[in-house]
């Protein structure tokens, strides 16, 4: 019965199918404001929780800790530090990338949170954990209210100059 042996999987009939669904996600209350500022003013915004003394980036409508609603908005730094990173040699479908991509988790300065984004203008062998980086924005015309409005993060210039001095 159900323990019948099938040696060659091609002996089994297969049925092909797919899920034909499209999605359109709203950004939500907090997300809409965040992306509007990103697009129009190249600003990174966060929401402050006064109880927990935290600024959430990306901003949230509520504090996940004390569960209070958050409506204090603050412009935060465009700079942060590399919390951890990886160098991707293959693409999402498993194909080899022509040029490796450095993906980093970047903690924005003085806030709780940050982003996973690409690192640019830097050679992969020069990347270090703790490295100070800054966001490089697309031009106003190119920005469309997406995380890709930030092209990538690159080593922070000011910090580098300081180090060279």
């Amino acid at each position: 019965m159900s323990l019948e042996k099938i040696g060659d999987p091609r002996d089994l009939t297969h049925w092909m199918g797919h899920m034909e669904t499209d999605y359109s996600y709203t950004y939500g209350i907090a997300g809409e404001k965040f992306f509007k500022e990103l697009k129009e003013n190249a600003k990174i915004m966060g929401t402050r929780c006064k109880n927990c003394n935290l600024i959430y980036v990306p901003p949230r409508l509520f504090c996940e800790r004390c569960f209070e609603k958050l409506d204090t908005w603050e412009t935060v730094s465009k700079r942060g530090s590399v919390h951890t990173y990886t160098i991707a040699n293959i693409d999402i479908d498993g194909s080899k990338l022509k040029k490796p991509i450095i993906w980093a988790m970047i903690k924005i300065d003085n806030v709780h949170g940050g982003f996973v984004h690409k690192l640019g203008e830097v050679d992969s062998k020069d990347v270090e954990i703790g490295m100070h980086v800054e966001a490089v924005f697309k031009s106003r015309k190119e920005r469309e209210g997406s995380m890709l409005d930030i092209k990538y993060f690159r080593p922070a210039k000011q910090k580098l100059e300081k180090a060279l001095r």
């Binding site: 089994l12 297969h14 899920m19 669904t21 359109s24």
Partner: peptide, 22 residues
């Protein structure tokens, strides 16, 4: 008129029809 992110999942399936249904 409302900002949204769009996405289409690119997944395909091949279901084995199993013992009885084969």
């Amino acid at each position: 008129k409302v900002p949204v992110v769009r996405w289409r999942p690119k997944v395909r399936y091949a279901w084995s029809t199993g013992i009885a249904m084969s």
